[in-house]
Design a protein around this nucleic acid. Structure first.
Length: 468
RNA sequence: GCGCCGGUAGCUCAAUUGGCAGAGCAUUUGACUCUUAAUCAACAGGUUCCGGGUUCAAGUCCCGGCCGGCGCACCA
């Protein structure tokens, strides 16, 4: 059987449902349409048959009658999952279901596998993730969540464009994986006979474009981190990184809260949602609290980056965390914050004023050189974004990288790699600039009310099956 | 990487204390001219994830492996 190469359709299910809402039971419209989609259900009753057909917009019933429908017997034997193209009149059946009364029809593709139990769908995670194409047909929530992810990406992109940011693309293959603290994936280029790392962040490239005079740039793209897989971590994930010359970290916080609240409005029409059964608000402005302040409240004593390291280490130890010898006061403070506060931060909040020790790319705080002008936003107990006033001083930047190198020598696994090209770029002059990195998958999880990151990634990273 | 839990027909799930491996849907065949997860009847469908072990007897108990879910760690 030769299947058609095209099918010219002129109507969608959802639009038909709207257009013919006034058609009464048993009424025929006199209008012929051509629709196409997938047979989801099929009910035969002797010389008539009813099929529920779904297209990208929704569902509509196909009504086949032996005296009207060509090749009726074959129609009644269609399989669930088959794609069909249909020509027929829009009618409403006696029982009130809007239908296309089939005259001519054609099989566009046959389904050799079914799409799971027609009531229960597919629930096996392995099957759902390895064969998302089947999951998408079987489970409406899968479609909704992935559509919402797409809407999030679109909204983010359009909002950045609207503010005059230039969308750019920077290398994924890098000789040094820098811009964040994470283990990279490595690969090899044969013709160049060179090893490359997949990027863990586009940060340094984007700031080089700002040096080059693109005052507002952003990249919405995949980054790769060779770390653990969890319901909140996929080895490849999508990040927005955005840089604005002449802004500081406070400007970037304002941008961030407006962007995220705006995305919620664009996608859901509201900033007030329920996430996993609990009320959640995207509404701006978000509170801004210094890390040391939050940590002090949590441990009920004043701590800061100036607190003696041993005191912080002891507070950590009381909470089951042993400070590594390489950790200074800054790292200890940050750990203390993570242990005591992070999980409690439900509604969006900016945590500000990070220790310089853990922030090798951030500009020093104007009121305290041991701090940097950096923030992270948290929501539902997790980090959502990270931003700061960018370090523009090439001399300080080199010193910061060298500190990182010392940490690496002391046994720290994830430290920032020194990037000479980047230091040289700073020597050409980076204007005052603020930058932001925002996890798109995490944002999509919030918007789609999903607790597992895999539900907002069409094809999440899975362990390959051994016999393949 | 570590811990806990899980894997039975194409899909969703049963199977008492270790005692004949089952149902619904899908598939196949038949009936039915307004169905809505249509209904009714019949047929067929199994390496119980894989490999060992204990036992008269293993889907069930033990060991190892594979894959997944959740938690921890790393990280965003």
């Amino acid at each position: 059987m030769t299947l058609p190469y095209t099918f010219a359709h002129d109507a969608f299910a959802a639009a038909l449902q709207t257009t013919y809402v006034a058609l009464t039971d048993g009424e025929e419209s006199g209008v012929t349409v051509r629709v196409a989609g997938r047979v989801m259900l099929l009910r035969r009753q002797g010389k008539v048959a009813f099929a529920t057909m779904r297209d990208s917009s929704g569902e509509i019933q196909l009504f086949a009658v032996a005296s009207v429908t060509q090749e009726f017997e074959e129609f009644a034997k269609l399989h669930l999952g088959d794609w069909v193209g249909v020509t027929g009149e829009v009618v409403r059946t006696k029982r009130g279901e809007l239908s296309v009364k089939v005259v001519n029809w054609v099989v566009l593709a046959t389904a050799l596998h079914n799409f799971g139990d027609k009531w229960a769908g597919i629930s096996d995670y392995d099957l759902r993730y390895r064969h998302r194409e089947a999951d998408l047909w079987a489970n409406p929530m899968t479609r909704t969540s992935l559509q919402r992810r797409s809407a999030v990406v679109r909204s983010v992109r359009e909002r950045c464009w609207a503010l005059g940011f230039l969308e750019v693309e920077t290398p994924i293959l890098n000789t040094i994986a820098s811009g964040s603290d994470a283990r990279p994936f490595s690969t090899h280029h044969n013709a160049l006979d060179s090893d490359f790392f997949l990027r863990i962040a586009p940060e340094l490239w984007l700031k080089r474009l700002v040096v080059g005079g693109f005052e507002r740039v952003f990249e919405l793209g995949r980054v790769f981190r060779n770390e653990g897989v969890s319901p909140r971590h996929n080895p490849e994930f999508t990040m927005l990184e955005i840089y604005a010359a002449y802004w500081n970290y406070e400007d970037m916080m304002s941008f961030t809260e407006e962007l995220v609240a705006g995305v919620a409005m664009d996608v859901l029409g509201t900033t007030e949602i329920e996430y996993q059964g609990r009320a959640f608000s995207f509404a701006a402005p978000w509170p801004r609290r210094a890390m040391a302040e939050l940590a002090s409240e949590a441990v009920r004593e004043d701590v800061s980056v100036h607190t003696p390291r041993e005191q912080l280490a002891s507070l950590l130890s009381e909470r089951g965390v042993e400070a590594q010898t390489s950790w200074g006061s800054g790292r200890c403070l940050s750990q203390l914050f993570e242990v005591t506060c992070e999980a409690t931060l439900w509604n969006p909040i900016f945590v500000t004023d990070f220790p310089v020790e853990i922030s090798p790319l951030s500009r020093r705080h104007q009121s305290d050189p041991e701090l940097v002008e950096r923030f992270e936003s948290y929501a539902i107990g997790r980090e959502l974004s990270n931003g700061f006033s960018e370090l523009i001083d090439p001399v300080d930047q080199r010193a910061r990288f060298e500190d990182q190198a010392r940490l690496a020598a002391a046994g720290e696994t994830d430290t920032m790699r020194i990037d000479e090209d980047y230091i040289k770029a700073l020597e050409w002059g980076l204007p005052p600039t603020a930058g932001l990195g925002l996890g798109i998958d995490r944002l999509a999880m919030l918007i789609a009310d999903e607790s597992n990151i895999r539900e907002v990634i069409a094809f999440p990273t899975l362990k390959p099956l051994v016999d393949q």
